[in-house]
Design a protein around this nucleic acid. Structure first.
Length: 325
DNA sequence: GTAAATATCCGCCAAG
DNA sequence: ATCTTGGCGGATATTT
């Protein structure tokens, strides 16, 4: 879903304001604003915009000044709000109007963290599923009863309107956008360069449950640790369940609640990660790597790699060996 | 590449 | 009443 016309880069705008915390803004800058000469595609054109003209104080004791105003904000292909000055009141009417205008024009409107309050104030979340930082979920529900607030996901993709949860989930949101625009291969390269934890990279899941572990409930953590330790051997679901003294059914259920993916999918992700590592750092044959990573045969390794990274083992190795030297 | 054999996943529901 | 558990079955995925 790239709405850019040919010959023009996809523009992303993000709103800055006085008193804001820099973290989520930084994530957006990192993903969309950083030059990426290693990719042979035109990268995004990021515009940091603000209502204020003068310098804005940021949390942490420094000041910043944006180069663009609200017009640039409203006219981008992807319009992002990563926070609001005050979650208890609506953002400035100019901002609300800019969001409505952008959405009506067909722009993709995205929020991270408390930015969802700005989208909600503009009516863009009415009747839709949306998320925000878990600290604000109740307040968002109370202030905007027409919004179906889902607190325990990393992000919600409504195609033209997307909402991301708090803090680091903003990065997941940004990578998700890259994946939608440019495919898994490019998204994975960006994620790699960001050194983002692997289990958040690969999946197709637009919808990941429980960004923070649920307290108190029995956990599948020990079984996961055990599995990682013997990843090279075949691991049956019933063995993992037995590790936690759970039935297969309960284990599967707990696992999905904790990790957002099935045990089998998780296992595959871990094996793909190990495969990547070995491809990048050794000259072992694909057959040997298949043994060491638990894929068993090179055929199934190739299959999995093609699915998750979109490339063959040799192509992957060539790319990363080449860019490293 | 196909086909058969296995394994996994998950809604449903009764039982604790 | 409300919640968690775990067996069952059949759709789906994976391995051989």
């Amino acid at each position: 879903m790239i709405v850019t016309s040919p010959g023009r880069r996809h523009t992303v705008s993000v709103l800055a304001f006085d008193g804001m915390a820099p973290f989520e803004l930084g994530s957006v800058v990192e993903v969309f604003g950083l030059p990426r000469p290693e990719l042979d595609i035109p990268w995004y054109d990021l515009r940091v915009c603000s209502l204020e003209r003068g310098p804005m104080r940021a949390v942490g004791g420094f000041t910043m000044a944006a180069e663009h105003g609200l017009d640039a904000f409203a006219s981008a292909d992807t319009v992002m709000v990563v926070a609001v000055p005050d979650v208890r009141r609506d953002p400035p009417p100019e901002v609300v109007a800019a969001l409505r205008e952008a959405h009506a024009r067909g722009a993709r409107v995205v929020s991270i963290c408390s930015g969802a309050f700005a989208l909600a104030a503009a009516g863009l979340l009415d009747g839709r599923e949306a998320t925000t930082h878990w600290r604000y979920a109740d307040l968002l529900r109370r202030r905007f009863p027409d919004v179906r607030v889902t607190p325990d996901v990393l992000y919600v993709d409504g195609d033209d309107v997307l909402t991301g949860a708090g803090s680091a989930a903003g990065l997941d949101m940004c990578l998700h956008l890259v994946r939608k625009d440019h495919g898994a291969r490019v998204a994975n390269m960006v994620a790699r360069r960001l050194v983002v934890p692997p289990h958040r990279e690969g999946g197709q899941a637009q919808f990941i449950r429980r960004p923070v572990p649920a307290g108190g409930l029995p956990s599948t953590a020990a079984a996961r640790a055990w599995a990682l330790d013997r990843l090279d051997r075949p691991l049956a679901l019933r063995e993992l369940a037995a590790r936690e003294s759970m039935s297969v059914r309960t284990f599967t259920r707990r696992f999905r609640e904790e990790m957002g993916i099935s045990p089998g999918q998780w296992l595959t992700q871990q094996r793909v990660e190990r495969t990547r590592h070995l491809l990048e750092t050794t000259d072992l044959t694909v057959d040997r790597i298949a043994e060491l990573t638990g894929f068993g045969t090179a055929a199934s390794l190739r299959q999995r790699l093609r699915e998750t990274l979109g490339v063959s083992p040799s192509a992957y190795r060539r790319t990363f060996r080449f860019t490293k030297n």
